[in-house]
């Protein structure tokens, strides 16, 4: 029951973030550019770009994106924290875990926003950056490094039970989990951001892929064309089960 409640709360938070992203208040999810930047990179075009897309607003959008796309991946680790902690420390330890996890993605976000802005300056509206990144993402997707990152994402630390060490461990667990998650998903996360258009749809596709690969069991790292379509297989199997039940 507690496990179900955890799933519902986290999915609820994620859905809320998705709604905000779809509404896109203040255009936090899209990089605005103008004719100045179209004329080529310059100090003035950078100023213009920053004025139209303040870093704070870009970071807010990035944070929402992480919450929307990544939080469902935290269900199992948070269930683990709840199952293995004293009742009075469960909630705060889970919050610290999520905070540590978010902190890693936000740090990476700063770097990624820099890259995105730079590419917008150099090649505004161009599909070239996203094409290049797609090639890198595909290579990364089937690499042993990516598999190792996914495997380590299954490593769930057992937190200390008493005292301040509980919160230290929870934060550390979040940071470590975040690092492996970034290692596995950085290229996929960057892809929708580089798209001149259609990034909401791309985010949905990327979320599905990342959730699916997160559900796969760890495997021996090797170069391997593996689509990690466990979520898709599971949905198909569950539909088949429901249809069979309905027929009986």
């Amino acid at each position: 029951m507690v496990r179900t409640a955890i799933s519902r709360v986290i999915l609820g938070v994620s859905i809320f973030a998705w709604v905000l992203l779809l509404i896109n208040p203040g255009h936090i999810m899209s990089m605005e550019h103008c004719h100045v930047s179209d004329s080529g990179p310059s100090v003035s075009s950078l100023h213009m770009l920053l004025e139209m897309n303040p870093i704070a607003s870009q970071l807010t959008g990035w944070g929402l994106m992480v919450v929307a796309m990544m939080f469902p991946k935290l269900i199992i680790p948070i269930q683990h924290i709840y199952a293995r902690s004293l009742r009075r420390t469960r909630f705060s330890a889970s919050l610290l875990f999520a905070f540590g996890y978010m902190a890693v993605w936000m740090a990476v976000g700063l770097l990624m926003i820099g890259v995105i802005m730079g590419l917008h300056l150099l090649m505004p509206g161009s599909y070239l950056p996203v094409t290049g990144l797609a090639v890198i993402a595909i290579i990364w997707q089937f690499s042993p490094v990516k598999q190792r990152c996914l495997n380590r994402g299954h490593n769930h630390l057992i937190l200390a039970t008493f005292g301040w060490a509980v919160y230290r461990d929870a934060l550390l667990f979040g940071v470590i989990h975040g690092i492996w998650c970034v290692g596995a998903g950085w290229a996929l996360m960057l892809l929708p951001m580089l798209l001149p258009s259609g990034h909401t749809f791309a985010m949905l596709v990327v979320t599905f892929i990342m959730l699916s690969e997160h559900l796969e069991h760890p495997k021996v790292p090797r170069w391997h064309v593996d689509f990690r379509a466990k979520l898709f297989r599971m949905i198909v199997a569950q539909i088949q089960i429901r249809l069979k039940e309905a027929q009986e």
């Binding site: 190792r148 495997n151 380590r152 299954h154 490593n155 769930h156 069991h217 760890p218």
Partner: peptide, 9 residues
């Protein structure tokens, strides 16, 4: 084993 199905748990 970290790269096994159990993830080294």
């Amino acid at each position: 084993i970290k790269d096994s199905q159990h993830g080294g748990a």
